[in-house]
Amino acid sequence: MTTNPGAAPTAYTDGEKETLHASLDRHRDAVLWKLQGLDDEQVRRVMTPSGTNLLGLVKHLASVEYGWFCSAFGREVEPLWFDPSSGEDMSAGQGETTERIVEFYGRARTAADRTVTELALDDVGTTGSGRAVSLRWVLVHMIEETARHAGHMDIVRELIDGGTGDHRPG
């Protein structure tokens, strides 16, 4: 499996789990690429009436990686310094540096990847609302979630400096 931005699975015949994981990684990498080359003001710049900004979306994606891949499967979750249920995961506070949030996303990805590596697609966890959920469903859901927010980030990035695309050109 590759994790290069814009790369497909190592072969178009990889197994289901490897293909799903590679797809998630491709979108995760696009999320990080959307921050590259921007300064602190730009990654925090609110570009929509709802308050959407690049750094807030990364913080949100980190918290949902922990929630779906770790909490749901009874695995350790890093203590959060914010309340995602109140929407605090969608914005970056003054004391939250870009570095802190990007590193938080990296740790969430690593924890989530351990779950993906160690469990089978049919293994079942439990959501915060008590619903049973398979790792397969979580992978598909997180591909959707990450791709959706990477698309938001693409639009925000275009509004900031004209940069577009799902991976670095060339």
Results as ranks from 00 to 15, higher is better:
residue 4 N to I: 15
residue 5 P to D: 12
residue 6 G to V: 01
residue 7 A to F: 13
residue 7 A to V: 06
residue 8 A to F: 15
residue 10 T to M: 12
residue 13 T to N: 15
residue 13 T to Y: 15
residue 13 T to A: 15
residue 14 D to Y: 08
residue 15 G to C: 10
residue 15 G to N: 13
residue 18 E to T: 12
residue 18 E to V: 12
residue 18 E to F: 08
residue 19 T to A: 10
residue 19 T to W: 09
residue 20 L to H: 04
residue 22 A to K: 04
residue 23 S to V: 02
residue 23 S to L: 12
residue 23 S to E: 08
residue 24 L to Q: 00
residue 24 L to G: 02
residue 26 R to S: 10
residue 27 H to K: 04
residue 28 R to F: 02
residue 29 D to R: 15
residue 31 V to K: 06
residue 31 V to E: 04
residue 34 K to C: 02
residue 34 K to L: 03
residue 35 L to W: 07
residue 36 Q to P: 06
residue 44 R to M: 04
residue 45 R to T: 09
residue 45 R to L: 09
residue 46 V to W: 08
residue 47 M to T: 08
residue 49 P to N: 04
residue 51 G to F: 08
residue 55 L to R: 00
residue 56 G to I: 02
residue 59 K to I: 00
residue 59 K to C: 01
residue 60 H to E: 07
residue 63 S to W: 07
residue 63 S to K: 06
residue 65 E to Y: 13
residue 67 G to E: 09
residue 68 W to C: 01
residue 69 F to N: 04
residue 70 C to T: 00
residue 72 A to K: 06
residue 72 A to E: 05
residue 75 R to C: 00
residue 77 V to P: 07
residue 77 V to R: 10
residue 81 W to Y: 05
residue 81 W to K: 03
residue 82 F to M: 11
residue 83 D to M: 05
residue 83 D to Y: 11
residue 85 S to M: 10
residue 86 S to L: 14
residue 86 S to N: 13
residue 86 S to A: 14
residue 87 G to H: 12
residue 90 M to T: 07
residue 91 S to V: 14
residue 95 G to Y: 13
residue 99 E to A: 07
residue 100 R to A: 14
residue 101 I to A: 01
residue 102 V to H: 05
residue 102 V to P: 01
residue 102 V to K: 07
residue 104 F to W: 06
residue 104 F to S: 01
residue 106 G to C: 03
residue 107 R to T: 02
residue 108 A to W: 00
residue 108 A to H: 00
residue 109 R to Y: 11
residue 110 T to A: 10
residue 110 T to Y: 06
residue 111 A to G: 03
residue 112 A to P: 00
residue 116 V to M: 13
residue 117 T to D: 15
residue 119 L to E: 03
residue 120 A to W: 12
residue 120 A to P: 08
residue 121 L to Y: 02
residue 123 D to M: 03
residue 126 T to N: 07
residue 127 T to Y: 08
residue 128 G to Q: 04
residue 129 S to F: 11
residue 130 G to N: 03
residue 130 G to S: 02
residue 131 R to A: 06
residue 132 A to K: 14
residue 132 A to C: 09
residue 133 V to F: 08
residue 134 S to K: 15
residue 134 S to Y: 11
residue 136 R to D: 05
residue 136 R to F: 08
residue 137 W to Y: 14
residue 137 W to E: 09
residue 138 V to H: 13
residue 138 V to M: 12
residue 144 E to F: 15
residue 146 T to E: 06
residue 146 T to S: 03
residue 147 A to C: 10
residue 149 H to L: 07
residue 150 A to S: 15
residue 152 H to D: 09
residue 152 H to A: 07
residue 152 H to S: 06
residue 153 M to Q: 01
residue 155 I to C: 10
residue 160 I to Y: 05
residue 162 G to N: 03
residue 164 T to M: 13
residue 167 H to F: 14
residue 167 H to K: 10
residue 168 R to N: 14
residue 169 P to E: 09
